[in-house]
Amino acid sequence: MIKTAFLLAKKDLYSELKTKQVLTTMIIFAGLVILVFSFAFDPANNTTKAVIPGVIWVIVVFSGILGLNRSFLSEQRNDTMQGLLIAPMDASSIYLGKFLANFTMMLVVELVSIPFLFLLFDFKIIGSIPYFILIMFIGSFGFISIGTFLAALAANSKSSEMLLPLLLFPVTSPILIGVVQATRIILTNMEKFSSALAWIQLVSAYDVIFFVLCFLLIEYVLEV
């Protein structure tokens, strides 16, 4: 099953490598967000540092949605989704494959945009970088795992591009609240480290529960 999932993820990433459509859109979007924020808040001013955790997650959420929307809609062309459904594999392999592809693209976007953001705002991390990376990882993991599931659900609807954000926000808000808080503490105020740790634990638990849930329920979403 893992092998099939990797095969599917490779297929998606390789075709993304050829067309570069989705990834470019995501990165351009992230760049625009950063630029607009740098116009709105003077990077030289010290108080603007407070908005950085928010900006990071705005980038993740919105560019993530751009990618998630495409991930199942792209299988509608030539009905390739049918090709996957008639292949001898479980629906959970399709989910896992799509999740891996989306997660990789999300990480690429973060890897490009966040250093750019820090550079532009001349941001010096006073907290811990490993913890920051950990938060980025678990936050994106939860967001993408739930997002992939809901994208599969929404893809059957006519107005899926509108439906996905509507479904996604209520379900992922605990993750987003948790990671924004944790990011803020880690980046600016290491004294409250214990409360950041509590947020991290909360988000991790939420991640695990929802990942398993999505994994088990995807069968009912993908069947026709």
């Binding site: 099939t4 095969l7 297929k11 390789y14 075709s15 050829k18 067309t19 062309r77 030539n78 009905d79 390739t80 049918q82 090709g83 996957l84 008639i86 292949a87 001898p88 594999m89």
Partner: peptide
């Protein structure tokens, strides 16, 4: 199964398409 639609990936060549599906079927 051969339906009305091709079930092929547009950006892929015949070789890549067939290798992908071949691997999918083991």
């Amino acid at each position: 199964y051969l339906p009305h639609s091709s079930l092929l990936y547009d950006h892929y060549s015949p070789l890549e398409n067939l290798v992908f599906f071949g691997k999918l079927y083991g």
